[in-house]
Nucleic acid binder design. Structure first.
Lengths: 165, 165
DNA sequence: CTTGAAATCTTCTAATC
DNA sequence: GATTAGAAGATTTCAAG
């Protein structure tokens, strides 16, 4: 299920192009990669089936939606037991302010990436949704000055990833 | 530039649908929202022009690409001056292991989300690309057990965001 | 993997409300 | 000013080689 997949240079080329712009047409992909459009269709369908491509996502600007302030919240959940962390995760995941949630090693159990209107909104969020919860032992808030997406995700340098199956 | 934009219920409905699946056709959007396909085209084009929609992105599974271990690195850069942090950011952004980079308030200046092959790969990355740099004063590594994407990004509850421009 | 054709989708113009 | 209908042009998709 989590095993890596064998990718040839054509797959990698297609993935790089689609990561650059997920709306690139099969015709353009074909011209760029040097195969027929139907081959690109076939490759992309296979990459979807094999789970390499999880989906197509819209990137939105939170500031344009009235959520111009972003922050990371480090949260300790104590005691750190399944019957407490399950509901915690579910609640945090469904908050409209939450963008991403990580379960981590280390003293802080969770990291929550949130997008809010302003500092007052952030204060409300921390007080009403985090520190008010019995299982939340500690919350540390850090504001995000700036963030960057990084280059395309590709297999480690060898070129074809792992041993496949 | 970062001002929020006025969105009516049709825009919000379209955004919700596209965040669910960015490949939804205008025809399907139209049927769901209750307007003509050409209207959907128009709305989406406007949302792009106004900057609400930044682009279309492919979501990939790092594990399937041979990067089954993810981690967050907290980094202190000292002294924290522009002539040092500029090259640092540029270098980290272009690492194939980097997925996202945040400049933060608080004692740790940067948070780097990385995807690597295994713990040996992570050790190499930390030693060769972080602690070996003169301006990196401290690196704290936390492994990611699990991560979740959260619900669709929408304007704060009032329904239409901000005052527009 | 490619060709080629059919179905579907995107996109534009003109007309309408 | 925004929306719709309809038509032309692309694109996607499939079957056959």
């Amino acid at each position: 299920m989590a095993d890596s997949v064998v990718l040839d240079p054509v797959d990698l080329h297609i993935l790089r192009l689609l990561q650059n712009d997920a709306r690139t047409t099969y015709r353009e992909l074909a011209a760029e990669v040097g195969v027929a459009p139907s081959t690109c269709l076939d490759r992309v369908a296979r990459l979807r089936r094999s789970g390499v491509i999880l989906g197509h996502q819209l990137r939105l600007d939170p500031a344009k939606l009235g959520r111009g302030l972003e922050a990371l919240l480090s949260v300790q959940v104590r005691p750190h037991r399944r019957e407490l962390i399950g509901p915690f995760v579910e609640r945090i995941r469904t908050l409209p302010e939450s963008r991403a949630l990580f379960h981590l090693t280390g003293p802080d159990d969770y990291l929550v990436h949130v997008a809010v209107t302003d500092t007052a909104d952030l204060q409300r969020l921390v007080l009403d949704e985090f520190t008010s919860r019995r299982e939340v032992a500690r919350v540390e808030t850090r504001l995000i000055f700036q963030q960057w997406e990084c280059g395309p995700l590709l297999p480690p340098s060898s070129g074809s990833a792992g041993t496949g199956h």
